[in-house]
């Protein structure tokens, strides 16, 4: 097996806030090989977007990013000068943002923005860039691409803007794409089409993909690896099969109980839920952060909780080795 394309060890993101320091990402590890898809799921506010942005080097100076290791194709991202980081970004690694409107420039046409993404990194003519842009718009399911290229972002529906962002990330054929909720705003037929497109491109170009999503159906179907985040930590990780067939952390089990599953959940019956709220991560945080909501919690959960192996690459962070009952 070759070296991983992305190797992250003990990544932390600290944010100075009025009440002290917000420990938003608290020591996470992950590795990704070419051709692999890693899905990151987890509670809103658990640090998924910050993790993605940290890898892309897109967090402002105010946020303190530290890691024992953060390597892309063997090069240390942590110590890389801004200029080199910019050269990598959009070229070798690209990001599809959670909120497309904030990442498209309202003053430029779709075509100009797509071409710019390519011409910043490659010596190609405007016409060549436009042709590639039109081709990619077609691939993400936008018809009449030629006329869309002349439109401005505000003239497109949310779903169309999201597809433009996906096309933009593909302009330079990157080695790594990080997509933050790329299909949430789309209907399921287009979602399926775009996920297949990403999977095909991944195979063709031997690309690596990180997908942040709340949609557990998407995760089950496309992930090679899954990382479940809660309060800034990865509380469970493993293959999609391991996570869905043998969820081991109480939070993961709770999540899987929250979604209606056609054929399993009866229409109209209350869905499972995880009562309580996420604790504040400002100041010192110790013990398992899920204990305020966990029905398996015992006193020892307030002290350091070990990471356990559930066989192979399947790991989870919990005081219990074997859980006695299902989390309701």
């Amino acid at each position: 097996m070759n070296d991983p394309i992305l190797n992250v060890k003990n990544l932390t993101v600290d944010i100075p806030v009025s009440g002290g320091t917000l420990h938003a990402v608290r020591g996470i590890d992950f590795e990704l090989n070419r051709g692999e898809t890693l899905c990151i799921v987890g509670e809103s506010g658990s640090g998924k977007s910050l993790t993605s942005l940290a890898v892309m080097g897109l967090l402002g100076k105010r946020l303190q990013v530290r890691a024992d290791k953060m390597e892309f194709e063997g090069r240390d991202l942590g110590s890389m000068p801004q200029r080199q980081m910019q050269a990598l970004r959009g070229d070798r690694m690209a990001m599809i943002f959670q909120e497309p409107m904030t990442s498209l420039n309202p003053a430029y046409t779709i075509g100009d923005q797509l071409c710019e993404a390519l011409r910043l990194h490659r010596k190609v003519s405007k016409a060549e860039a436009m042709a590639r842009a039109a081709d990619l718009l077609g691939k993400v399911g936008i018809t009449a691409a030629e006329s869309r290229l002349r439109q401005f972002p505000h003239q497109l529906s949310g779903g169309l803007r999201q597809r433009v962002m996906i096309a933009m990330s593909l302009m330079c054929e990157p080695d790594l794409i990080i997509a933050d909720e790329p299909t949430t705003a789309l209907d399921v037929t287009i979602q399926a089409q775009i996920l297949r497109l990403l999977a095909d491109l991944k195979r063709e170009m031997n690309m690596a993909l990180i997908l942040v999503t709340h949609d557990l159906g998407v995760v089950a179907r496309i992930a090679d690896k899954v990382a479940v985040m809660y309060a800034g930590e990865i509380v469970e990780s493993g293959s999609a099969k391991e996570i869905f067939d043998a969820p081991s952390h109480p939070y993961t089990r709770g999540l899987l109980n929250c979604i209606p599953v056609p054929g399993k959940t009866k229409p109209g019956e209350p869905l499972g839920s995880i009562p309580g709220i996420v604790p504040s991560l400002i100041g010192d945080v110790s013990g398992c952060a899920f204990r305020s909501r966990c029905n398996q919690a015992i006193e020892a959960c307030a002290s350091t909780v070990p990471e356990r192996s559930a066989g192979g690459e399947h790991k989870y962070r919990c005081i219990h080795t074997q859980l006695t009952s299902e989390v309701a």
Binding site: T143, T189, A192, Q193, A199, A220, R221, I243, D245, I259
Partner: peptide
Amino acid sequence: RALLDSVLTPDPSLSVPDIHLGATFPNPIS
């Protein structure tokens, strides 16, 4: 039918289905 076929149930033994809908998305202007 295509919509229902596209629903992704959380089943890791399945992949994303190919629903065989052409990619000729309609243009609402014509």
